[in-house]
Amino acid sequence: MSLAGPAPTGPVVALEGAVVAHGGFPLLAGVTLELAPGTLTILRGPNGAGKTSLLRLLGGLEPLSGGRGVVAGVDLAHGDRRLLRRKVGWVGHEGSFYDDLTAEENLRFAARALGRPGAAVGPALARVGLTARAATAARRLSAGQRRRLGVAWLLVRRAELWLLDEPYAALDDEGRELVGELLVEARAAGVTIVASAHEALAFDGDREVRLAGGRVVG
């Protein structure tokens, strides 16, 4: 299965003093960060450090309140963020699906929305071990199974930038191993990956970025 679209040249992420503010509160207080294509970066930091906000900014899900940034060739301040969102694969730490649709229907919806063949759905479900749950409504899946479904959603699309918010949350050992394998595979295929994590991971990142107080501190 092909995991990524064409690999970009130059840095995939280039942020300079990026600020994201909500209701007067700066979630990100000036992040400067550059990430090369085909790398796996792990974001670390205490609760409220800005890990999720940074991932959301990179995914075009939050507007830039200050500073500059270019992600996957899209200018965050003036560019078309919808274009950026199409290039991004997102796995949030909340449930990410239509709860009343089955696992398979959720993936089919994503595939059709992206103009990908429906044939990509079956293998993706198999890869994350959810074939037996294909016809189960997303709301009936356990937290760990939902997380696996989130990863399957990534596999269905050809995103050049994967953003994962706490990919290990609620996963059993087997699930962690699986996600680790998939991420390493994707990186080898040229995908740029940014994942936030609290705990130790089953794979090595190319780089660890420490966040605190809405900034990169190491």
Binding site: V19, A21, G24, P26, A29, G213, G214, R215, V217
Partner: peptide
């Protein structure tokens, strides 16, 4: 005022990280 508040909040936020 909102802009001043944001500047102050930014400074406070940066201190959080030290």
């Amino acid at each position: 005022r909102e802009s001043d508040d944001l500047t102050a909040a930014l400074a406070a936020r940066v201190l959080e990280g030290r």
